[in-house]
Write a protein that binds this DNA or RNA. Sequence first.
DNA 1: GTCTATATCTAGATAGAC
DNA 2: GTCTATCTAGATATAGAC
Lengths: 190, 190
Amino acid sequence: MRYSKSHKEDTRRKLLDSSRALVKKGGFDSTGVEALMSAIGLTPGAFYSHFPSKQALLEEVIREEMQYSLSMLKPQPADGGSTLNQRTKAYLSVPHAEHPEAGCVLPALGSELARIPVEVKSIIEDGLKDMHSVWNDELKDENAAWAVIAQCVGAVILARSVKSDATRREILRANRAQVDALLRSRARSD
Amino acid sequence: MRYSKSHKEDTRRKLLDSSRALVKKGGFDSTGVEALMSAIGLTPGAFYSHFPSKQALLEEVIREEMQYSLSMLKPQPADGGSTLNQRTKAYLSVPHAEHPEAGCVLPALGSELARIPVEVKSIIEDGLKDMHSVWNDELKDENAAWAVIAQCVGAVILARSVKSDATRREILRANRAQVDALLRSRARSD
DNA sequence: GTCTATATCTAGATAGAC
DNA sequence: GTCTATCTAGATATAGAC
């Protein structure tokens, strides 16, 4: 065969990794197949050897992204046991606001998610429930767990929607302070 | 003249009102000029008698939407003096989640706002600061004011991103409960 | 001001050569 | 598996008739 048997999965892997970043940066609808393929040095025609449609790629991107976001939320053995509070500070940071391509898919696609097909919404829902579970383990409060997830996603979206760096920093700082206060109050009452 | 002098502004008004709803429902990029014009019974060619470009329409849509959202947030003489808590309950409601075309522009466009030109981001920023001011008047807490705005926007986006009605209701209910608790605790300490 | 017609561009997707 | 070429459909925007 002209291509080794691992070549296809290598290319697919590269396409997925590259596409995840591009889609988070530019949005799904406005990022074309040509852009996705040329980013890995291929031409658009080759796309359809890996996915039957652009829509199918989106489904896989969302699946991997939700898994990635969840893994970032959970305590990592590798990072020396960072606290949930530390990880939230990173989420509500200027670098995260300025680099959607490396961040969480929820604020990056945000409102586009309201218009995706139901199969993809199932993936989102499952991932969100897992995230809620992680927060609830820490907070022991189902309502507060949903609220803090919503707050974090909303804060990053707002931070990315304003013009001035000063307001962006202010929005993020205020939200960090609120989450910090919430976590401290829960720790005291434990 | 073949058209009365008020005809142009009438058409422009109809186009803007109609476009505001369509853009919130379908997104800005994915709603074409043809769709915007046929919604008011005209053909695409006539669009450019009112706006030099689709981009110019977006700017006006955002301007009016931010003003509208702000007016909904402020106490209305007409509604018998509803409380901020009552208005927030309406924001975090299933009807709002299910009808983006009639709701707030922030969760409706959400992540698309991260990619709009800076002129439009200025409008968003000014509107957000006004909203923050309204919340701060009530809460007397700058951080909490930013947090609750982020939470409300994020909650509606999440509610629209999940598949099941049950989870959608749960996300909204939990967030309503949290905002309610925040407002009550502030009222006590006044 | 609005219409019809069209120019121009770009999108997603397919066909056949290599 | 990838490339080149192309089909079809849709977009924004323009030109000229009414």
